[in-house]
Each structure stands twice: as C-alpha cells, then as structure tokens.
Simulated assay, not measured.
Amino acid sequence: MAGTKAPCALIVMGVSGSGKSTIAAALGDRLGWRFEDGDSFHPKSNVEKMRAGHPLTDEDRWPWLNAIADEIARACSRGEKIIIACSALKHTYREVLLRGRDDVRFVFLKGTQELIADRLAHRKGHFMPPGLLTSQFNTLEPPEASEHVITASIDESVEAIVDGIVRQLKIDGGKSRAKEI
C-alpha cells in the first residue's frame, strides 16, 4: 500500500490550474528534491490535442502515466528523491503511477472550480485552455484516505501551502529525511 515507507517520490496532483508545478517546484526547493513537471512526459500528440481544446482520453493518458512511473522507478532505484507535478485525476491513473510501490506519496491540491477558473483566466503561455477545466473536474476522483494522500487547500500562499505539506510529511529539519509514515 502506498505511503507505508518514507517516500522517495511525491506526486503533486490536482486539476489544471491548481498550482501543481508551482507547489511541486517550491516543495522541491524546500526539501532539496529533484522536481519534474509531468507535462514534459506527454507525447507531442497529447499536447497538440489539449492545445486544440480537446480533452485527453484514457488511451491518450496511458503512455504518459507509464513514462512518469518509469521515471519514478529510475529515480528511486538510484536513491534519488523526486517530486513530480501530475494531474493524476483518477484512482486508476494513480495505481499506474504507483505500480504497487509503498514509497510514493500523493499531495492533492484542492480548490474550488471558481478559484481555479479565475487563475486559469490569468495564466499565459500554457497549452491547457481554460475551457477544459470542467472536463478536469468531471474526471477528478479525489483521493481517499486509503491512498495515504496529503491534502492541501490552495487558497493560501505558496509558502503556507508548502509549510503545511512539509508538516504533514513530518520531514526532519526541512530536508529530505522523511520519517516513516
């Protein structure tokens, strides 16, 4: 079961516009862990599809999720610590990302559709158009306690959100030594 050992990987998850990349990068800086944006693992066809305003299907997502899971496996096998920003909207997607590992934790960035829509309306240069937000919320299966998830409200400052995540992880001294959780 995920989350029973000290994590070697964190997956910061949520709908588009929830702040995954911002929070994951700040968390990586705080902990001294490597940050990767899950978007960089999308095949070109997925990016083009989203840019055109079309939601991805599960068939579109499997290669992307497997590429992220492969990177987690590589990093953890080398003793690295990694944080990946990835929507991970469905339970089945999270299972693919975990591959049965118990040293990966999810951090769910939770916010209202209204707050996130406002953020997306002001975001520039991202391939995910604001019009797909409704499909993201329709797809979202919020993680359950059994998934050993950390939930963080996005209606605070980046620093406050990261502070709360670190507290919930029980990280010693703000660096990459996580206690058994």
Rank of each mutant, 00 (worst) to 15 (best):
R119G: 02
L97N: 04
L109E: 01
L109I: 03
L89D: 08
L109Q: 03
V104L: 10
V107E: 07
G79K: 09
M128I: 01
E114A: 11
L98P: 00
G100K: 08
A88L: 05
K124F: 02
S77W: 08
F106R: 09
H91V: 09
S87Y: 08
I116L: 02
I116Y: 00
E114H: 02
L89G: 11
Q113F: 06
A121V: 00
F106Q: 09
V104E: 08
E80L: 13
I82L: 15
K90P: 09
D118V: 05
K90R: 15
I83Y: 01
F106G: 06
D103Q: 08
R99G: 15
S77P: 07
Q113C: 07
A85T: 03
D118E: 15
T92C: 13
E114P: 00
I84G: 13
H122V: 02
H126M: 10
M128Q: 04
M128R: 03
S87N: 07
I84L: 14
S87Q: 05
V96L: 10
L97M: 07
R105K: 08
D103I: 12
G79V: 09
K110W: 01
K110E: 12
H122L: 12
I84T: 13
I83F: 01
A117C: 10
L115P: 03
F108D: 03
A121F: 00
R101Q: 13
K81F: 11
A117N: 10
L98Q: 03
K81Q: 14
H91I: 07
L89Q: 08
G100N: 11
R78S: 14
K90F: 05
A88C: 07
S77D: 15
D103F: 12
H91M: 06
R99C: 13
Q113P: 13
K124A: 06
E80N: 13
A88N: 05
C86W: 04
L115M: 14
A121S: 15
G111C: 04
I116S: 01
Y93I: 02
I84V: 15
K90I: 04
H122W: 01
R94E: 11
T92W: 03
L98I: 00
E95P: 00
K124M: 04
T112K: 10
V96I: 14
E80M: 11
R123Y: 03
A85D: 04
L89C: 09
L98F: 03
L109F: 04
A88H: 04
